[in-house]
Design a protein around this nucleic acid. Sequence first.
DNA 1: TCCTGATCTGACACATGAGTAAGTTACGTA
DNA 2: TACGTAACTTACTCATGTGTCAGATCAGGA
Lengths: 197, 197
Amino acid sequence: MRKPPPPRVGTKGVPRADREAEILDAACREFGEQGYRHASVARIAAACEISRALVYEYFGSRDGLHAACARFIGDPLVAAVTAAQTSADPDERARATITAILTRLEERRFDWQVIYDPTVPPDAAGHDLLQDYRAALNRLGAEGVRAVSDTTDDLDLSLLTQLWYGTVTSTIAWWQRHPEETAASLAERWQRLLAMR
Amino acid sequence: MRKPPPPRVGTKGVPRADREAEILDAACREFGEQGYRHASVARIAAACEISRALVYEYFGSRDGLHAACARFIGDPLVAAVTAAQTSADPDERARATITAILTRLEERRFDWQVIYDPTVPPDAAGHDLLQDYRAALNRLGAEGVRAVSDTTDDLDLSLLTQLWYGTVTSTIAWWQRHPEETAASLAERWQRLLAMR
DNA sequence: TCCTGATCTGACACATGAGTAAGTTACGTA
DNA sequence: TACGTAACTTACTCATGTGTCAGATCAGGA
């Protein structure tokens, strides 16, 4: 029956940088789980046990917060995938790419959905950003697809590229329902299943 | 500069059955395009050029309308896919399955997203319905997967099944951006690309 | 002609969520 | 110890969306 302590009004002594990181983390989860449209600043603030007003103070708007999340997730992800493109062998390169993605997302499995969020409206600040990240990832994926397939038809290639990313998205969705699987074990499983065919 | 005619108050002489079908059609598109959470009864009503109140009169609530859409889409789709499972040859059966799905969705490409809408909350009336449809489609897909693959590991099979439906979902997403493609030509393209590997 | 039921609407009440304004508390520092 | 500033909250305004209600209009039958 103990009542929760009444919310104090003054500062809690948390430096801005720390608080911003905390908010960003909660926001990535919220935007990933709910999508841009249904993400709520109120829930993000509640997760950090602060008021909504502080979120606006630090990030300006819901949209600004979303753009910050996009950058926070997109920059290192694109860097990691780019860094994985070392081998000349297409199969080995595909393996390295999927391993890089999975490793990057190991502790943040909802991040992928922030990048591939279909509910971001075109006038959102983060929209163009996300499009750039997707384009970068797409370019890398398309190169891999071109190396493996023997078609030259543009429509074929665009469909294959879409299928490649659909496969990655499906895998991550499956992963979210199988939390016991690690990035390493999943990459291994993937390799085995794809080789089977 | 002609002003639109002022909205009349009385009946427009449209029988209930016809109006219900019209609303259902608009609602399927809205739920498919926007997802359960962001779908708006106001937009559905506007598409039919009627007031929101009539939608509530006929379908009770947004949730009831959604459940009706789920049934309207799910029943014939599951029936069509089930009917396609005739051949004993796994490759031929996969071809028949994808053709059945694409043909069914030819004029209603947004229907698939209604079935695989991730934004339906568990307490929605249509949630369990959709889960049943997905389970039925999944069971059919899983049989095909089992026939093709040579693993017996349960996790492997569940991942492969997820990948199968991820592939279908990706294909339909691609299709929405390539309206000139017909069900037949897309099925043929699919077959060719999958055989290539 | 009058009445009954089907079709349909405008105007509400109410909830949720974005964004803002004004003020409170505590910390560091001179 | 006094003060400026960073951290933080409450209490609003405003917009959007759901759901309800009383009543308007029309078609068809007694």
